[in-house]
């Protein structure tokens, strides 16, 4: 095992500057963009769901929470069917492109961010909102301060969203196709190397993936734990 990691490390040094850089960058770009878009969709809807009261609210939240456990490979299948050349959105020519991967990953990450946003804001004292409004906060000022108050669990939601897509392989494979120089990302590359019997290379890529996830989450954790300014 130890020798495998050693060899992987040497392999890694060999790879640097070659395809590895490209693959890593694409992984980061696709996952980062998908997480960002999911945040743009999930945070407002999640906030609205957390703060409003309507009859079927419980049902909607249950659906969202089920969406958090959506199997990526099923999402991949669905997106692939839709974007297939003969599919309903085939004319867009998106199948086997990074854009298609982003679409699939947004579908995977949005319920995660949305569901955890509802939970994060749901943990706040409901009277905090009344208190803010009672001090003259407008609707947006109220939402902004509620986000601030819930910033720790909200950043956790962001981390969970990013984690769900950076580590995802089924959908990336199905809608991206693992084409070198086009749609190959770290996870699909690992699957490929394993199927080729290139275990050392697979482990090397695994180390890169872990390091990447660690760095991104490290930055977010730092932002989360930073003591509030004055």
């Amino acid at each position: 095992m130890a020798s495998l990691v050693d060899q992987a490390w040497q392999m890694l040094q060999g790879l640097v500057g070659g395809d590895l850089f490209e693959i890593t960058l694409l992984s980061l770009a696709v996952s980062g963009l998908a997480t960002g878009l999911s945040l743009l969709i999930g945070l407002p809807i999640g906030t609205w769901l957390a703060l409003s009261r309507f009859r079927s609210r419980g049902l909607v939240i249950s659906v969202v929470n089920t969406g958090m456990a959506l199997p990526p490979v099923v999402v991949g299948l669905f997106v692939a069917f839709t974007l297939w050349r003969s599919g309903p959105l085939g004319d867009l020519g998106l199948i086997y492109t990074p854009s298609a991967m982003v679409v699939a990953e947004v579908i995977i990450a949005t319920p995660v961010i949305l569901g955890l946003t509802v939970a994060a804001l749901g943990q706040l004292d409901p009277r905090l909102r009344l208190q803010l409004m009672g001090l003259g906060a407008s609707r947006w000022q109220t939402v902004w301060w509620l986000w601030r108050e819930a910033r720790l669990p909200l950043l956790a939601a962001l981390m969970a969203g990013f984690g769900s897509v950076i580590s995802e392989v089924g959908a990336a494979m199905m809608v991206g196709g693992n084409i070198l120089h086009q749609t190959r990302v770290l996870t699909t590359a690992i699957v490929l190397e394993v199927s080729r019997g290139e275990f050392v290379k697979a482990v090397a890529l695994g180390i890169v993936l872990l390091t990447l996830a660690f760095l991104v989450n490290g930055v977010l954790t730092w932002a989360q734990q930073r003591s509030p300014r004055r």
């Binding site: 004292d125 009277r127 208190q131 009672g134 301060w145 601030r148 108050e149 509030p228």
Partner: peptide, 12 residues
């Protein structure tokens, strides 16, 4: 100006 039973101060 509103004051509630719990002070509900903001985390700052």
């Amino acid at each position: 100006g509103l004051v509630l039973p719990d002070p509900l101060l903001l985390n700052t």
